[in-house]
Design a protein around this nucleic acid. Structure first.
Length: 412
RNA sequence: CGGAGUGUAGCGCAGAGGUAGCGCGCAUCGUUCGGGACGAUGAGGUCAUGGGUUCGACUCCCAUCACUCCGACCA
């Protein structure tokens, strides 16, 4: 893609925030804050978010079916499960008197979708033969956090993948739950944060007496704390760690990027989602839910991978693999060589951002290449002659190679 | 929701009871062109909102709203 299609620019003077992701993502022109905890995703930022979500989608498609539920839902669903008191709920209604005369109803902006998916599937999957099954969606969620903070790490509107599974028995649920745990490990690996992401035991709230599992990425800006229990060989979050463990073990700062959660029969009983088993007996369906905060993952990745120059995207989520810059000047031959390299990369299916801006200094192009963080930087100039200069974002080493070798290098 | 701070040009900021400032960015021209180039010229403002004090308020006072940070909260 030519850079003039990326209609937003970098801004070296953008405001500095206390968290790296808030500062760098805005400096580099990936996101723009609309209000506290609510962001627009600009062309480069949306590409990253989409990549993250597509990796999650690929893995989820192996274990469930993708659906899309509404963000706006009737209050009565939340009244039914007795969760209207939850203070993170947003409510919407007609904004002016006229519209309120026509439709007085107010709706909930969903922070999570148990209330939608449970009545949805009880309409059609009511036999033991229909169980187990699982469905997921990737969607914008709304939570009225009292204090949004830290860029994409905690917003009032954010992106999340939520998977829900339905089972005839708790044993069956358990088996699937463990499988998803493994799938999550793979997902965070693919997202580039596997090494720093741990599974911690957490509390189950009102839903279950057993432990639930959080996926936490080590991160200084993270809001959560976990402890390593040497004896149990397990991490515990602050909510469930014993005082003994808290005293004797180091605090590990993390950001929670995912969780998996047995729901028991709370929702199936609230909605009357019963299935008929082989002997004709009606029983409540066992459920579990599994979340990954895809926009938070984007923030966490920036927190983990950056330097003084800017962001360093893992290859799997980078908006483009190559930042190709042609150094400015009047030399038409240089521009033609760069154009050819751009076309060759495109032809080979390499995602390349081509900085062919005229009237922009070479220095600025190099700064932008670092700031926006593509894995590879390729430069064509008078200096490079018939060759092309290639540099990895993670390295200082600059190599002059033949244009025809470029493909091999960036594909490796 | 408690505490602190900030709201002035598109962005980042300075300033001040009596004509509204700087840097970046933007526009035009020229020179540049490998680590955010330079000169010249120019456009761009309801100084967050509402009240009050005052001859006069963008400046002082009060309230409200928004944003940032700390704390509490976080299925």
């Amino acid at each position: 893609m030519r850079i003039d299609q990326i209609i937003t620019r970098t801004n070296k003077e953008a405001k500095e925030f206390d968290t790296i992701n808030a500062t760098l993502l805005q400096k580099a022109g990936f996101i723009d804050q609309t209000m506290a905890g609510v962001y627009s995703y600009l062309p480069l930022g949306l590409r990253v978010l989409t990549r993250i979500e597509n990796i999650i989608r690929e893995e989820m498609d192996k274990v469930g079916s993708e659906i899309l539920m509404p963000a706006m839902v009737p209050r009565e669903l939340w009244e039914k499960t007795d969760r209207m008191e939850t203070d993170i709920l947003f409510e919407v209604r007609g904004a002016n008197d006229k519209s309120r005369k026509k439709n007085k109803a107010s709706y909930i902006l969903s922070p999570t979708h148990e209330e939608v998916i449970t009545p949805l599937f009880m309409k059609q999957r009511m036999s033991y033969k229909d169980l187990p099954f699982a469905a997921y969606q990737i969607q914008t969620k709304f939570r009225n956090e009292e204090r949004p903070k830290s860029g994409l790490l905690r917003g009032r509107e954010f992106r999340m993948k939520d998977l829900y599974s339905f089972h005839a028995s708790d044993e069956d649920r358990r088996e699937y739950y463990d499988r998803i745990k493994d799938v999550y490990v793979k997902i965070f690996d693919r997202l580039g944060i596997g090494e720093d992401t741990i599974v911690a035991l957490a509390g189950g709230g009102d839903f279950t007496d057993e432990f639930t599992h959080e996926f936490d990425t080590r991160c200084e800006s993270g809001e959560d704390i976990v402890y390593w229990d040497e004896r149990e060989q397990a991490y515990y979050n602050a909510e469930v760690a014993s005082d003994e463990l808290k005293d004797g073990s180091e605090e590990i700062k993390v950001s929670e990027v995912g969780n998996i959660f047995p729901l028991g029969t709370k929702f199936s009983e609230a909605f009357g989602y019963m299935f008929t088993d082989q002997s004709g007996e009606r029983k409540p369906v066992h459920m579990a839910s599994y979340g990954i905060g895809s926009s938070r993952v984007m923030g966490v990745i920036v927190e983990k991978f950056n330097d003084d120059g800017g962001i360093i995207w893992p290859k799997s989520v980078a908006p483009f693999q190559v930042y190709l810059a042609v150094m400015p000047g009047d030399n038409k031959a240089v521009i033609e060589r760069a154009d050819k390299i751009y076309e060759d990369l495109l032809g080979a299916g390499i995602e390349v951002l081509y900085d062919d801006r005229a009237g922009v200094s070479g220095g600025m192009k190099l700064k932008d290449a670092d700031l926006t963080g593509m894995p590879w930087r390729a430069v064509v100039s008078e200096k490079t002659g018939s060759k092309v200069e290639i540099k990895a974002r993670t390295s200082e080493e600059i190599r002059l190679i033949k244009g025809s070798d470029l493909l091999k290098v960036v594909k490796a």
